[in-house]
Design a protein around this nucleic acid. Sequence first.
DNA 1: ACAAATTTTTAGTTTTATCTAAATTTTTAT
DNA 2: ATAAAAATTTAGATAAAACTAAAAATTTGT
Lengths: 218, 218
Amino acid sequence: MTLSEEDYIKVIYHLGKNENGTVSTNAIADRMETKPSSVTDMVRKLSEKGFVNYKKYKGVSLTEIGTKTALTLVRKHRLWEVFLVEKLNFPWDEVHEVAEQLEHIKSEKLVDKLDKHLDYPEVDPHGDPIPSKNGAFKKSIKKLMNEIPIGANGVCVGVKDSSPPFLKFLDKNNIALGDSILILDKEEFDESLHIRINGSDIHISSQIASNLYLRITE
Amino acid sequence: MTLSEEDYIKVIYHLGKNENGTVSTNAIADRMETKPSSVTDMVRKLSEKGFVNYKKYKGVSLTEIGTKTALTLVRKHRLWEVFLVEKLNFPWDEVHEVAEQLEHIKSEKLVDKLDKHLDYPEVDPHGDPIPSKNGAFKKSIKKLMNEIPIGANGVCVGVKDSSPPFLKFLDKNNIALGDSILILDKEEFDESLHIRINGSDIHISSQIASNLYLRITE
DNA sequence: ACAAATTTTTAGTTTTATCTAAATTTTTAT
DNA sequence: ATAAAAATTTAGATAAAACTAAAAATTTGT
Ligand SMILES: [Mn+2]
Ligand SMILES: [Mn+2]
Ligand SMILES: [Mn+2]
Ligand SMILES: [Mn+2]
Protein backbone atom coordinates (compact mmCIF):
# COMPACT_ATOMS: atom_id res chain seq x y z
CA MET A 1 0.00 0.00 0.00
CA THR A 2 1.44 3.34 -1.01
CA LEU A 3 0.67 6.54 0.87
CA SER A 4 -1.46 7.71 -2.01
CA GLU A 5 -3.47 4.50 -2.19
CA GLU A 6 -4.11 4.74 1.54
CA ASP A 7 -5.40 8.30 1.28
CA TYR A 8 -7.77 7.32 -1.54
CA ILE A 9 -9.14 4.41 0.48
CA LYS A 10 -9.75 6.65 3.47
CA VAL A 11 -11.57 9.21 1.34
CA ILE A 12 -13.74 6.54 -0.25
CA TYR A 13 -14.54 5.24 3.21
CA HIS A 14 -15.55 8.66 4.57
CA LEU A 15 -17.61 9.60 1.52
CA GLY A 16 -19.27 6.19 1.40
CA LYS A 17 -20.49 6.42 4.99
CA ASN A 18 -23.06 9.08 4.15
CA GLU A 19 -24.21 7.60 0.84
CA ASN A 20 -25.31 4.04 0.18
CA GLY A 21 -21.63 3.15 0.06
CA THR A 22 -21.12 4.02 -3.61
CA VAL A 23 -18.97 7.07 -4.28
CA SER A 24 -18.62 9.12 -7.47
CA THR A 25 -15.39 9.96 -9.25
CA ASN A 26 -15.96 13.70 -8.93
CA ALA A 27 -16.70 13.47 -5.21
CA ILE A 28 -13.35 11.73 -4.67
CA ALA A 29 -11.55 14.23 -6.88
CA ASP A 30 -13.02 17.15 -4.92
CA ARG A 31 -12.03 15.69 -1.56
CA MET A 32 -8.55 14.68 -2.69
CA GLU A 33 -8.04 18.03 -4.43
CA THR A 34 -7.06 16.26 -7.61
CA LYS A 35 -8.53 15.79 -11.10
CA PRO A 36 -11.25 13.29 -12.00
CA SER A 37 -8.96 11.65 -14.56
CA SER A 38 -6.41 10.94 -11.84
CA VAL A 39 -9.16 9.39 -9.74
CA THR A 40 -10.18 7.09 -12.57
CA ASP A 41 -6.60 5.83 -12.85
CA MET A 42 -6.23 5.22 -9.14
CA VAL A 43 -9.64 3.66 -8.73
CA ARG A 44 -8.87 1.18 -11.48
CA LYS A 45 -5.63 0.26 -9.74
CA LEU A 46 -7.36 -0.17 -6.38
CA SER A 47 -9.95 -2.33 -8.10
CA GLU A 48 -7.26 -4.57 -9.63
CA LYS A 49 -5.73 -4.93 -6.17
CA GLY A 50 -9.08 -5.90 -4.68
CA PHE A 51 -9.72 -2.93 -2.40
CA VAL A 52 -12.74 -1.52 -4.25
CA ASN A 53 -15.61 -2.62 -6.47
CA TYR A 54 -15.59 -0.57 -9.63
CA LYS A 55 -17.77 -0.55 -12.73
CA LYS A 56 -17.00 2.11 -15.32
CA TYR A 57 -19.29 5.13 -14.98
CA LYS A 58 -21.03 3.49 -12.00
CA GLY A 59 -18.91 4.66 -9.07
CA VAL A 60 -16.83 2.79 -6.50
CA SER A 61 -17.40 1.11 -3.15
CA LEU A 62 -14.99 -0.55 -0.74
CA THR A 63 -14.67 -4.32 -0.67
CA GLU A 64 -14.43 -6.12 2.66
CA ILE A 65 -10.65 -5.93 2.62
CA GLY A 66 -10.88 -2.29 1.52
CA THR A 67 -13.11 -1.48 4.48
CA LYS A 68 -10.75 -3.30 6.84
CA THR A 69 -7.85 -1.26 5.46
CA ALA A 70 -9.80 2.00 5.84
CA LEU A 71 -10.68 1.21 9.45
CA THR A 72 -7.06 0.48 10.29
CA LEU A 73 -6.11 3.87 8.86
CA VAL A 74 -8.90 5.68 10.71
CA ARG A 75 -7.78 3.93 13.90
CA LYS A 76 -4.19 5.05 13.43
CA HIS A 77 -5.20 8.60 12.50
CA ARG A 78 -7.37 9.05 15.58
CA LEU A 79 -4.93 7.40 17.99
CA TRP A 80 -2.21 9.77 16.82
CA GLU A 81 -4.59 12.71 17.27
CA VAL A 82 -5.17 11.64 20.87
CA PHE A 83 -1.41 11.38 21.39
CA LEU A 84 -0.78 14.84 19.98
CA VAL A 85 -3.42 16.46 22.20
CA GLU A 86 -3.02 14.41 25.39
CA LYS A 87 0.72 13.89 25.50
CA LEU A 88 2.20 16.72 23.45
CA ASN A 89 -0.40 19.40 24.27
CA PHE A 90 -1.22 20.28 20.69
CA PRO A 91 -4.34 22.43 20.20
CA TRP A 92 -7.17 20.27 18.84
CA ASP A 93 -7.43 22.28 15.64
CA GLU A 94 -3.82 21.52 14.62
CA VAL A 95 -3.67 17.76 15.01
CA HIS A 96 -5.44 16.64 11.87
CA GLU A 97 -2.70 17.77 9.50
CA VAL A 98 0.06 16.00 11.43
CA ALA A 99 -2.04 12.86 11.95
CA GLU A 100 -2.60 12.80 8.19
CA GLN A 101 1.12 12.02 7.93
CA LEU A 102 1.53 9.83 11.02
CA GLU A 103 -1.31 7.50 9.98
CA HIS A 104 0.93 6.13 7.21
CA ILE A 105 3.72 4.86 9.48
CA LYS A 106 3.94 1.11 9.00
CA SER A 107 4.31 -0.84 12.25
CA GLU A 108 1.50 -2.81 13.83
CA LYS A 109 3.51 -3.02 17.04
CA LEU A 110 3.74 0.77 17.15
CA VAL A 111 -0.03 1.14 16.96
CA ASP A 112 -0.60 -1.44 19.69
CA LYS A 113 1.92 0.19 21.99
CA LEU A 114 0.57 3.66 21.27
CA ASP A 115 -2.96 2.44 22.06
CA LYS A 116 -1.75 1.08 25.40
CA HIS A 117 0.29 4.22 26.18
CA LEU A 118 -2.87 6.28 25.68
CA ASP A 119 -4.83 3.87 27.89
CA TYR A 120 -7.07 2.57 25.11
CA PRO A 121 -9.04 5.72 24.24
CA GLU A 122 -12.48 5.29 22.66
CA VAL A 123 -12.79 8.69 20.98
CA ASP A 124 -10.41 11.17 19.37
CA PRO A 125 -10.09 14.85 20.37
CA HIS A 126 -13.04 15.75 18.12
CA GLY A 127 -15.34 13.15 19.66
CA ASP A 128 -15.01 10.71 16.75
CA PRO A 129 -14.92 7.03 17.75
CA ILE A 130 -11.68 5.04 17.43
CA PRO A 131 -12.17 1.63 15.78
CA SER A 132 -10.80 -1.29 17.78
CA LYS A 133 -8.00 -3.45 16.40
CA ASN A 134 -10.54 -5.72 14.71
CA GLY A 135 -12.47 -2.80 13.25
CA ALA A 136 -15.37 -2.49 15.72
CA PHE A 137 -16.77 0.89 16.78
CA LYS A 138 -18.33 1.70 20.11
CA LYS A 139 -21.51 3.32 18.83
CA SER A 140 -22.62 6.37 20.76
CA ILE A 141 -26.06 7.92 20.85
CA LYS A 142 -25.38 11.50 19.88
CA LYS A 143 -27.52 14.15 18.20
CA LEU A 144 -26.80 17.43 16.49
CA MET A 145 -27.66 20.31 18.82
CA ASN A 146 -30.15 21.84 16.39
CA GLU A 147 -32.24 18.65 16.45
CA ILE A 148 -32.70 18.60 20.21
CA PRO A 149 -35.93 19.81 21.85
CA ILE A 150 -36.04 22.94 23.99
CA GLY A 151 -35.51 22.20 27.66
CA ALA A 152 -33.29 19.15 27.07
CA ASN A 153 -29.98 18.65 28.85
CA GLY A 154 -26.92 17.23 27.17
CA VAL A 155 -23.19 16.83 27.21
CA CYS A 156 -21.14 18.08 24.30
CA VAL A 157 -19.51 14.96 22.86
CA GLY A 158 -18.32 15.79 19.36
CA VAL A 159 -18.08 18.12 16.40
CA LYS A 160 -19.39 17.44 12.92
CA ASP A 161 -17.13 20.03 11.28
CA SER A 162 -13.62 19.66 12.64
CA SER A 163 -12.01 22.38 10.55
CA PRO A 164 -9.61 24.72 12.37
CA PRO A 165 -11.85 27.81 12.01
CA PHE A 166 -14.78 26.08 13.71
CA LEU A 167 -12.60 24.56 16.44
CA LYS A 168 -10.93 27.92 17.10
CA PHE A 169 -14.37 29.51 17.35
CA LEU A 170 -15.37 26.97 20.01
CA ASP A 171 -12.16 27.62 21.95
CA LYS A 172 -12.80 31.35 21.86
CA ASN A 173 -16.32 30.84 23.24
CA ASN A 174 -15.18 28.38 25.90
CA ILE A 175 -17.14 25.51 24.46
CA ALA A 176 -15.32 22.19 24.89
CA LEU A 177 -16.14 18.51 24.69
CA GLY A 178 -17.46 17.29 28.03
CA ASP A 179 -19.32 20.53 28.83
CA SER A 180 -22.92 20.27 30.06
CA ILE A 181 -25.44 22.16 27.99
CA LEU A 182 -29.08 23.12 28.53
CA ILE A 183 -31.17 24.18 25.54
CA LEU A 184 -33.05 27.28 26.73
CA ASP A 185 -34.84 28.54 23.65
CA LYS A 186 -34.85 28.60 19.86
CA GLU A 187 -35.50 31.70 17.70
CA GLU A 188 -38.09 31.00 15.01
CA PHE A 189 -36.57 33.49 12.60
CA ASP A 190 -33.04 32.08 12.12
CA GLU A 191 -33.17 28.87 14.16
CA SER A 192 -30.48 30.24 16.45
CA LEU A 193 -30.33 28.85 19.98
CA HIS A 194 -30.10 30.23 23.49
CA ILE A 195 -28.17 27.78 25.61
CA ARG A 196 -26.75 27.58 29.13
CA ILE A 197 -23.15 26.37 29.32
CA ASN A 198 -20.62 26.58 32.15
CA GLY A 199 -23.08 28.68 34.14
CA SER A 200 -23.58 31.38 31.53
CA ASP A 201 -26.32 31.87 28.97
CA ILE A 202 -25.15 32.41 25.40
CA HIS A 203 -26.69 32.76 21.98
CA ILE A 204 -25.40 30.61 19.10
CA SER A 205 -26.25 30.55 15.40
CA SER A 206 -27.89 27.58 13.71
CA GLN A 207 -24.65 27.00 11.76
CA ILE A 208 -22.87 26.42 15.04
CA ALA A 209 -25.69 24.32 16.50
CA SER A 210 -25.77 22.08 13.45
CA ASN A 211 -22.10 21.20 13.89
CA LEU A 212 -22.08 20.25 17.57
CA TYR A 213 -23.05 16.81 18.82
CA LEU A 214 -24.69 16.30 22.21
CA ARG A 215 -25.39 13.16 24.16
CA ILE A 216 -28.71 13.81 25.85
CA THR A 217 -28.40 13.20 29.56
CA GLU A 218 -32.10 12.86 30.26
CA MET B 1 12.49 17.59 0.23
CA THR B 2 11.17 14.19 -0.72
CA LEU B 3 11.57 11.17 1.53
CA SER B 4 14.16 9.75 -0.83
CA GLU B 5 16.21 12.94 -0.97
CA GLU B 6 16.21 13.03 2.83
CA ASP B 7 17.47 9.45 3.10
CA TYR B 8 20.30 10.18 0.65
CA ILE B 9 21.36 13.27 2.59
CA LYS B 10 21.42 11.31 5.83
CA VAL B 11 23.54 8.56 4.28
CA ILE B 12 26.00 11.09 2.83
CA TYR B 13 26.23 12.68 6.26
CA HIS B 14 26.95 9.41 8.06
CA LEU B 15 29.47 8.18 5.49
CA GLY B 16 31.19 11.58 5.35
CA LYS B 17 31.78 11.68 9.10
CA ASN B 18 34.43 8.93 8.95
CA GLU B 19 36.14 10.08 5.75
CA ASN B 20 37.41 13.56 4.96
CA GLY B 21 33.80 14.46 4.14
CA THR B 22 33.88 13.27 0.53
CA VAL B 23 31.82 10.18 -0.21
CA SER B 24 31.95 7.84 -3.20
CA THR B 25 29.06 6.85 -5.42
CA ASN B 26 29.48 3.15 -4.66
CA ALA B 27 29.60 3.73 -0.91
CA ILE B 28 26.25 5.51 -1.10
CA ALA B 29 24.79 2.83 -3.36
CA ASP B 30 25.86 0.09 -0.92
CA ARG B 31 24.35 1.84 2.07
CA MET B 32 21.12 2.75 0.29
CA GLU B 33 20.84 -0.73 -1.19
CA THR B 34 20.43 0.76 -4.65
CA LYS B 35 22.49 0.90 -7.86
CA PRO B 36 25.38 3.32 -8.52
CA SER B 37 23.56 4.72 -11.55
CA SER B 38 20.61 5.68 -9.37
CA VAL B 39 22.99 7.40 -6.98
CA THR B 40 24.53 9.43 -9.79
CA ASP B 41 21.06 10.67 -10.78
CA MET B 42 20.09 11.61 -7.25
CA VAL B 43 23.40 13.20 -6.41
CA ARG B 44 23.15 15.41 -9.49
CA LYS B 45 19.67 16.50 -8.39
CA LEU B 46 20.85 17.24 -4.84
CA SER B 47 23.72 19.22 -6.29
CA GLU B 48 21.36 21.32 -8.44
CA LYS B 49 19.28 21.98 -5.33
CA GLY B 50 22.35 23.09 -3.40
CA PHE B 51 22.55 20.32 -0.79
CA VAL B 52 25.81 18.74 -1.97
CA ASN B 53 29.02 19.64 -3.78
CA TYR B 54 29.48 17.30 -6.70
CA LYS B 55 32.15 16.98 -9.37
CA LYS B 56 31.77 14.11 -11.83
CA TYR B 57 33.92 11.10 -10.85
CA LYS B 58 35.19 12.99 -7.77
CA GLY B 59 32.61 12.15 -5.12
CA VAL B 60 30.16 14.25 -3.12
CA SER B 61 30.19 16.20 0.12
CA LEU B 62 27.43 18.07 1.94
CA THR B 63 27.16 21.86 1.62
CA GLU B 64 26.37 23.94 4.68
CA ILE B 65 22.66 23.77 4.01
CA GLY B 66 23.00 20.03 3.32
CA THR B 67 24.70 19.49 6.68
CA LYS B 68 21.99 21.51 8.42
CA THR B 69 19.35 19.35 6.76
CA ALA B 70 21.15 16.15 7.76
CA LEU B 71 21.43 17.26 11.38
CA THR B 72 17.72 18.05 11.53
CA LEU B 73 16.98 14.55 10.28
CA VAL B 74 19.41 12.92 12.71
CA ARG B 75 17.80 14.95 15.51
CA LYS B 76 14.32 13.77 14.56
CA HIS B 77 15.44 10.16 14.14
CA ARG B 78 17.08 10.01 17.56
CA LEU B 79 14.29 11.86 19.38
CA TRP B 80 11.77 9.37 17.98
CA GLU B 81 14.02 6.51 19.10
CA VAL B 82 14.02 7.90 22.63
CA PHE B 83 10.23 8.20 22.49
CA LEU B 84 9.81 4.62 21.32
CA VAL B 85 12.04 3.22 24.08
CA GLU B 86 11.15 5.56 26.97
CA LYS B 87 7.43 6.07 26.39
CA LEU B 88 6.29 3.06 24.41
CA ASN B 89 8.69 0.48 25.89
CA PHE B 90 10.07 -0.73 22.60
CA PRO B 91 13.20 -2.90 22.83
CA TRP B 92 16.24 -0.87 21.75
CA ASP B 93 17.00 -3.16 18.83
CA GLU B 94 13.61 -2.52 17.17
CA VAL B 95 13.43 1.27 17.17
CA HIS B 96 15.70 2.10 14.27
CA GLU B 97 13.38 0.75 11.60
CA VAL B 98 10.37 2.68 12.89
CA ALA B 99 12.38 5.87 13.45
CA GLU B 100 13.55 5.56 9.85
CA GLN B 101 9.92 6.30 8.91
CA LEU B 102 9.04 8.77 11.68
CA GLU B 103 12.04 11.02 10.91
CA HIS B 104 10.29 12.11 7.70
CA ILE B 105 7.17 13.57 9.36
CA LYS B 106 7.07 17.26 8.51
CA SER B 107 6.17 19.49 11.46
CA GLU B 108 8.71 21.60 13.29
CA LYS B 109 6.22 22.09 16.09
CA LEU B 110 5.93 18.33 16.51
CA VAL B 111 9.69 17.96 16.99
CA ASP B 112 9.81 20.79 19.53
CA LYS B 113 6.93 19.37 21.53
CA LEU B 114 8.36 15.85 21.36
CA ASP B 115 11.72 17.15 22.60
CA LYS B 116 9.99 18.81 25.55
CA HIS B 117 7.82 15.75 26.27
CA LEU B 118 11.01 13.66 26.50
CA ASP B 119 12.61 16.29 28.75
CA TYR B 120 15.28 17.34 26.27
CA PRO B 121 17.33 14.12 26.04
CA GLU B 122 21.00 14.42 25.03
CA VAL B 123 21.54 10.89 23.73
CA ASP B 124 19.44 8.27 21.97
CA PRO B 125 18.92 4.68 23.23
CA HIS B 126 22.20 3.60 21.60
CA GLY B 127 24.23 6.34 23.25
CA ASP B 128 24.41 8.50 20.13
CA PRO B 129 24.20 12.25 20.75
CA ILE B 130 21.07 14.19 19.73
CA PRO B 131 21.86 17.44 17.88
CA SER B 132 20.20 20.52 19.35
CA LYS B 133 17.69 22.54 17.32
CA ASN B 134 20.50 24.67 15.88
CA GLY B 135 22.62 21.62 15.04
CA ALA B 136 25.06 21.54 17.97
CA PHE B 137 26.23 18.30 19.56
CA LYS B 138 27.24 17.78 23.13
CA LYS B 139 30.56 16.03 22.57
CA SER B 140 31.33 13.20 24.95
CA ILE B 141 34.69 11.64 25.71
CA LYS B 142 34.16 8.00 24.95
CA LYS B 143 36.49 5.23 23.87
CA LEU B 144 36.04 1.79 22.40
CA MET B 145 36.45 -0.86 25.07
CA ASN B 146 39.30 -2.60 23.24
CA GLU B 147 41.39 0.60 23.33
CA ILE B 148 41.24 0.99 27.09
CA PRO B 149 44.15 -0.06 29.35
CA ILE B 150 43.87 -2.97 31.76
CA GLY B 151 42.77 -1.88 35.20
CA ALA B 152 40.70 1.07 33.98
CA ASN B 153 37.15 1.71 35.15
CA GLY B 154 34.41 2.98 32.88
CA VAL B 155 30.72 3.36 32.26
CA CYS B 156 29.16 1.84 29.19
CA VAL B 157 27.81 4.83 27.23
CA GLY B 158 27.21 3.68 23.68
CA VAL B 159 27.41 1.08 20.94
CA LYS B 160 29.27 1.44 17.67
CA ASP B 161 27.30 -1.30 15.93
CA SER B 162 23.61 -0.82 16.65
CA SER B 163 22.33 -3.73 14.57
CA PRO B 164 19.65 -5.91 16.19
CA PRO B 165 21.88 -9.00 16.48
CA PHE B 166 24.52 -7.12 18.48
CA LEU B 167 21.95 -5.35 20.68
CA LYS B 168 20.15 -8.63 21.36
CA PHE B 169 23.48 -10.19 22.31
CA LEU B 170 24.09 -7.42 24.86
CA ASP B 171 20.58 -7.90 26.30
CA LYS B 172 21.19 -11.62 26.63
CA ASN B 173 24.44 -10.97 28.52
CA ASN B 174 22.93 -8.29 30.75
CA ILE B 175 25.13 -5.55 29.37
CA ALA B 176 23.29 -2.23 29.20
CA LEU B 177 24.17 1.44 28.79
CA GLY B 178 24.96 2.95 32.20
CA ASP B 179 26.62 -0.19 33.57
CA SER B 180 29.97 0.19 35.33
CA ILE B 181 32.76 -1.87 33.88
CA LEU B 182 36.26 -2.74 35.09
CA ILE B 183 38.81 -4.08 32.60
CA LEU B 184 40.43 -7.04 34.35
CA ASP B 185 42.70 -8.56 31.73
CA LYS B 186 43.31 -8.99 28.01
CA GLU B 187 44.29 -12.29 26.30
CA GLU B 188 47.26 -11.80 24.00
CA PHE B 189 46.14 -14.53 21.62
CA ASP B 190 42.75 -13.19 20.43
CA GLU B 191 42.57 -9.79 22.16
CA SER B 192 39.52 -10.96 24.10
CA LEU B 193 38.84 -9.25 27.43
CA HIS B 194 38.02 -10.30 30.95
CA ILE B 195 35.80 -7.65 32.51
CA ARG B 196 33.84 -7.14 35.73
CA ILE B 197 30.28 -5.94 35.21
CA ASN B 198 27.32 -5.90 37.61
CA GLY B 199 29.39 -7.80 40.15
CA SER B 200 30.28 -10.72 37.92
CA ASP B 201 33.39 -11.43 35.87
CA ILE B 202 32.81 -12.30 32.23
CA HIS B 203 34.87 -12.96 29.14
CA ILE B 204 34.09 -11.10 25.91
CA SER B 205 35.52 -11.38 22.42
CA SER B 206 37.45 -8.58 20.74
CA GLN B 207 34.57 -8.21 18.24
CA ILE B 208 32.27 -7.31 21.13
CA ALA B 209 34.84 -5.09 22.83
CA SER B 210 35.44 -3.14 19.64
CA ASN B 211 31.75 -2.22 19.40
CA LEU B 212 31.15 -0.93 22.92
CA TYR B 213 31.95 2.61 24.00
CA LEU B 214 33.02 3.43 27.56
CA ARG B 215 33.45 6.73 29.32
CA ILE B 216 36.44 6.26 31.58
CA THR B 217 35.53 7.19 35.12
CA GLU B 218 39.07 7.70 36.39
C1' DA C 1 -37.77 11.80 -26.48
C1' DC C 2 -33.93 14.24 -27.30
C1' DA C 3 -30.75 18.11 -26.94
C1' DA C 4 -27.86 20.17 -23.55
C1' DA C 5 -25.29 19.80 -19.49
C1' DT C 6 -22.69 17.09 -16.57
C1' DT C 7 -19.88 13.33 -15.38
C1' DT C 8 -16.52 10.09 -16.43
C1' DT C 9 -13.11 7.93 -19.16
C1' DT C 10 -9.35 7.77 -22.61
C1' DA C 11 -5.13 9.26 -24.78
C1' DG C 12 -1.06 11.34 -24.45
C1' DT C 13 2.48 13.97 -21.28
C1' DT C 14 5.29 15.00 -17.23
C1' DT C 15 7.99 14.20 -12.97
C1' DT C 16 10.30 11.26 -9.70
C1' DA C 17 12.86 7.43 -8.63
C1' DT C 18 14.25 3.36 -10.01
C1' DC C 19 16.61 -0.22 -13.17
C1' DT C 20 19.97 -2.61 -16.95
C1' DA C 21 23.47 -2.40 -20.22
C1' DA C 22 26.96 0.07 -22.36
C1' DA C 23 30.42 3.66 -22.40
C1' DT C 24 33.80 6.34 -20.08
C1' DT C 25 37.01 7.69 -16.53
C1' DT C 26 40.00 6.61 -12.80
C1' DT C 27 42.81 3.50 -10.19
C1' DT C 28 45.81 -0.42 -9.68
C1' DA C 29 49.26 -3.64 -10.84
C1' DT C 30 52.77 -5.42 -13.69
C1' DA D 1 53.99 3.11 -19.12
C1' DT D 2 50.39 0.59 -20.15
C1' DA D 3 46.99 -3.03 -19.71
C1' DA D 4 43.54 -4.78 -16.67
C1' DA D 5 40.33 -3.88 -13.09
C1' DA D 6 37.26 -1.04 -10.70
C1' DA D 7 34.39 2.89 -10.26
C1' DT D 8 31.37 6.03 -12.29
C1' DT D 9 28.46 8.02 -15.68
C1' DT D 10 25.35 7.87 -19.74
C1' DA D 11 21.58 6.16 -22.46
C1' DG D 12 17.41 4.20 -22.67
C1' DA D 13 13.35 1.87 -20.12
C1' DT D 14 9.86 1.25 -16.56
C1' DA D 15 6.40 2.23 -12.90
C1' DA D 16 3.79 5.46 -9.98
C1' DA D 17 1.09 9.40 -9.70
C1' DA D 18 -0.04 13.39 -11.40
C1' DC D 19 -1.82 16.58 -15.38
C1' DT D 20 -4.51 18.53 -19.92
C1' DA D 21 -7.45 18.02 -23.67
C1' DA D 22 -10.61 15.38 -26.09
C1' DA D 23 -13.98 11.67 -26.45
C1' DA D 24 -17.70 9.02 -24.63
C1' DA D 25 -21.42 7.89 -21.43
C1' DT D 26 -24.91 9.35 -18.34
C1' DT D 27 -28.17 12.50 -16.45
C1' DT D 28 -31.23 16.42 -16.71
C1' DG D 29 -34.60 19.61 -18.45
C1' DT D 30 -38.04 20.73 -21.58
MN1 LIG E 1 -2.82 10.77 5.00
MN1 LIG F 1 -10.27 13.78 14.46
MN1 LIG G 1 14.29 7.33 6.54
MN1 LIG H 1 20.08 5.22 17.37
